[in-house]
Structure formats: structure tokens, C-alpha cells
Design a binder for these strands. Structure first.
Lengths: 163, 163
DNA sequence: CATTGTTATATACCATGTTATTGATTTGCG
DNA sequence: CGCAAATCAATAACATGGTATATAACAATG
């Protein structure tokens, strides 16, 4: 069965990138599930942003994640319900709501940084290890690579086995 | 403001691909809007699949697009309401519903093939023209390129101006 | 040939992104 | 100062993806 998106090349590059991205996120989710991390893979960028940059107002969080502000508002509400982040008022501007990691959030990030992120990063790096050449070829190689050995199986094989 | 997704490299590759894909789709949408095409850019892969492969049952359509079947069912309902596709029963298997382009759908595809797709393809090819090297670098170049000159402005400049 | 399993599609519900709008502050200027 | 404009966040409404499940038709077997 022909893969139409792939055949159409540049014309459907957007759909294709989105499709590969979703695939990667889903696979990453499986790695996290296996490590008993209770957060959706898609929430990690937000947690990572707070980890890297410290407490931030909603708008700046949106900017640093490259997504629209309502998306951040929603994720923050969700993570706040899980007790991983909390929102406080700014002192000098009552409109701004500063988001920060709670103690639990901090702990989760630390665990993830130690156990999960290195595996995931290594698995993706493994997937992309031998890529070169034109973008479309690299994307095809990623798709084929994921189909051959899903990310979560690449994550099992630690350090030495990779590359 | 630091772009956290970009900084995290392979760790957030999924989020990043998704983000770039969405950006590209949104820009493509603007090109289509300007050409008075009345369909969401995200529906075009389905129309293109029917154009390339002829009438197909829902499941095979899903396979050839690389998305899950319910997504196809939804898109087909939408496009059927717009009168662009129609569904018929298979002769030998009453479960299968064969999706095909209507006359209007055929016409839309023909117009798009003539007017829109070449522009879009050229604009994306322009965006990706000088890319080389590691995947993450190419992605960064795409993001920077889109930020500098959005796809819809690249599509204005026809043939000669490109590359 | 009836029951059981499989397959094809539809439906329900959820996740996560978007844009447009609203409401509350803050800013800036006459 | 006082009011218009700008800014920040929340909400609503929509788009589009997913998984899980229901339903209907077909296949296969005792």
C-alpha cells in the first residue's frame, strides 16, 4: 500500500512532520509508562522549561515552548491538579500568574532527569544516528527506523549496545 | 527567550516535529485561503490519496495516509457534507464503504493540482533548498526560515524568483 | 447451520493544538 | 487625575489527532 504522504514529498511535509512527531511522542510515552512516570510525555517540555528557566509567567512559558498561550493555561491547570506545579501572583503586576514547580514537581523532574530522559535521548539519538543527506530522506529513514525497532525497544538497550 | 524545545534536542524531537508540522500546515492554509480553496489543508492528503489511488475503502485510505481509521471516518464525513467525496457500498462485502471523489471533488483536486500544489511544493522546496547536515540543524534552519519568511510569502514569489 | 471469532466501520471520549473573545490590570497621555 | 489603549491570562469554540469500544457483516468451525 502506497504511503501517500511520503509520495507527495514537500507538498505534505507539514502532515508528515506532524505524523512522525506524534509517533515519537507516543513511543516516548511508552518508555515513561514503563518507568512508572505518571505524566504525559507532552507535558514534559513544560516541566523542563520550568526546570531550566525557573518560575515563569504563563505568557513567557508559552513563548519559550513555542506554543500558544491557551495551551499553556490548560497544561498548567492540569499539572496544578496533579500537584506538580503551582501558580502565584506577581508582586508588581496582578495580571501575571507565575508558574513554578512544587516539591513534587521538582522531585518528578529530578527522577525523570536521572532515569528517563537519558534513555529517551539516547534512543532518539540512536534512531537518528546514521542520518544524513536531504531532509526527506532523513525523514523516511526515521519512519523506517521506527517501524523496524520502536523507540521503547531502543530505550531498553542501554549505553553500550547503542551505536 | 530561550526556545526550550530546541535546546532539549533529541529529547523533545517529537514535540518539535509536531510543532514545525503544525506551523507548516497553518502557513499552507494561508496559501490555500488566498487562492480561494475552501478546504482545510489537512484534508488534502485524503483527497490526494483518492486522486492517486482511485476509490478506496475507509481502512485502506487510513493505511495509505498513515493515520488511524476513526480519523479517516471523520474526515470522510466532513468532506461528504461538503459534497467532495461520496461513499458507496462494496458489492461483495457489505461492511466496506468505498470512498470516491465526486464531480466537485474531482474538479477541486484538478484546480488545486494546477494552481495550489505547485506553489506550495515550490515554497516548501524553497524553504528546504539549502538544507544539509544533521537533522537537528536542518530543523533549526526550517524554523528560522519560516520565522524569517513565512511560507505564504514564499508562495507568492513564483518560479523564477525561487532558488 | 448455528455459534464463535474476525474484520470493517462508526461512535464516544480524550488529548492537545489553534484563533477569537472576554475580563481584569496596567500604562500612557491629554 | 481620568480615560483610552495595551497587555496578560482565562474561556469558548473549533480542528484534528489518538484509543477503546460498539455494531454490523463476514468467515470458519464443530
Amino acid at each position: 500500500m502506497e504511503d501517500v504522504i511520503r509520495s507527495l514529498g514537500f507538498l505534505c511535509l507539514g502532515s508528515r512532520l506532524k505524523r512522525i512527531g506524534e509517533q515519537l511522542q507516543a513511543d516516548t510515552q511508552r518508555v515513561l509508562d514503563r518507568l512508572d512516570v505518571q505524566v504525559q510525555s507532552s507535558q514534559f517540555p513544560l516541566l523542563a522549561a520550568l526546570d531550566r528557566l525557573g518560575p515563569l509567567p504563563v505568557g513567557e512559558l508559552a513563548q519559550s515552548l513555542g506554543i500558544a498561550q491557551p495551551g499553556v493555561t490548560r497544561s498548567v491547570s492540569l499539572l496544578a491538579e496533579l500537584g506538580l506545579v503551582e501558580v502565584g501572583q506577581s508582586n508588581n503586576d496582578q495580571r501575571r500568574r507565575i508558574v513554578s514547580l512544587t516539591r513534587d514537581g521538582r522531585r518528578l523532574v529530578d527522577v525523570a532527569k536521572r532515569d528517563a530522559w537519558p534513555r529517551i535521548e539516547k534512543a532518539v539519538a540512536d534512531l537518528c544516528a546514521d542520518l544524513s543527506g536531504p531532509l526527506l530522506d532523513q525523514l523516511a529513514a526515521i519512519e523506517d527506523g521506527l517501524a523496524a525497532v520502536p523507540l521503547d525497544r531502543r530505550a531498553e538497550r542501554t549505553g553500550a549496545a547503542v551505536q
